[in-house]
């Protein structure tokens, strides 16, 4: 049964230096508040996994939390580059960042394999590209039935997955809807999981297209209203596109970035 805990306590207990951590969310429901708490608690040497590392991973990388990034697309959607990510790769600032990169289809299937308790997943993918040259986690595999050569990707099993959702009940059953991305697979693939929610309610009313994560499949739930901002929670908020546009200038310069981080993360304190 998931424990209902304050965000700071959940991060202190579940996210350790050196862990493989996935903060998932496909544009929608990105757990920004939890990412900020990881920065405030000064976690180090993390392997950050995510299909679409965007602004929260830019912040985690710039804050020096990450040693390695496992991903498939790293950008500020609709705006351009992630400058802290680029600075880390091109100039090793604030430290070197190892990369393992995939396609979206490959990353999605790596989580599916992890959630399924399998060592790998099979897809038609990567063929003819330069991506397999750079990681041992993409290999050709022959179909035992047809002989066709397909692609295998190794399962991805984070030490801890963090996602944001619309709501949970007091037993820790979690409900999310709208664009649900790969959150279910990422939670079920992980050894531990933390879900931040907009609100904790007495009873979960069904919503079309919902995903429900039963409380016994989640480690901890923290109530963090607005915890996805500047991403959004369908039914609660809209995407703050102005923030994403403004991030380009904030993140371009190291000192401007550090000043922003100090003011809006370190001195802001935990939201819950």
């Amino acid at each position: 049964m998931a424990k209902l805990v304050p965000l700071a306590d959940a991060v202190a207990e579940l996210v350790h230096d050196g862990d493989v951590v996935a903060l998932e969310g496909f544009t929608h429901l990105i757990p920004f508040a939890a990412g900020h708490e990881i920065i405030r608690q000064r976690r180090r040497e993390l392997t950050l996994a995510r299909m679409t590392p965007d602004v929260i991973y830019d912040q985690l990388i710039g804050a020096g939390c990450a040693r390695r990034l496992v991903f498939s697309w790293g950008g500020n959607p609709g705006v351009g580059s992630l400058h802290r990510f680029r600075d880390a790769v091109q100039h090793a600032w604030p430290g070197p960042l190892e990369l393992e990169e995939h396609s979206h289809a490959g990353m999605a299937n790596r989580y599916v394999a992890g959630a399924s308790g399998l060592p790998f997943a099979v897809l038609r993918g990567y063929t003819g590209t330069d991506l397999p040259r750079h990681t041992a986690n993409i290999r050709p595999v022959d179909c035992p039935f047809t002989g066709e050569t397909l692609t295998a990707v190794a399962a991805l099993r984070p030490d801890v997955t963090v996602v944001h959702a619309q709501r949970a009940d007091r037993a820790g059953n979690v409900q999310l809807w709208g664009i649900t991305g790969v959150q279910k697979e990422a939670v079920l693939a992980a050894h531990r999981s933390l879900v931040t929610v907009e609100e904790i309610v007495a009873e979960l009313t069904p919503v079309p297209g919902q995903v429900v994560l039963p409380g016994w499949a989640v480690t901890a739930v923290a109530e963090v209203p607005g915890g996805a901002h500047p991403s959004y929670a369908q039914g609660y908020s809209v995407r703050d596109n102005d923030f994403y546009r403004a991030w380009d200038a904030v993140s371009r310069d190291r000192d401007t970035f550090r000043a922003w981080l100090d003011r809006h993360v370190h001195r802001a304190g935990a939201a819950a």
Partner: peptide
């Protein structure tokens, strides 16, 4: 650059 995303498949 940002990387592959969905493009290879």
């Amino acid at each position: 650059l940002p990387g592959a995303g969905g493009a290879p498949e």
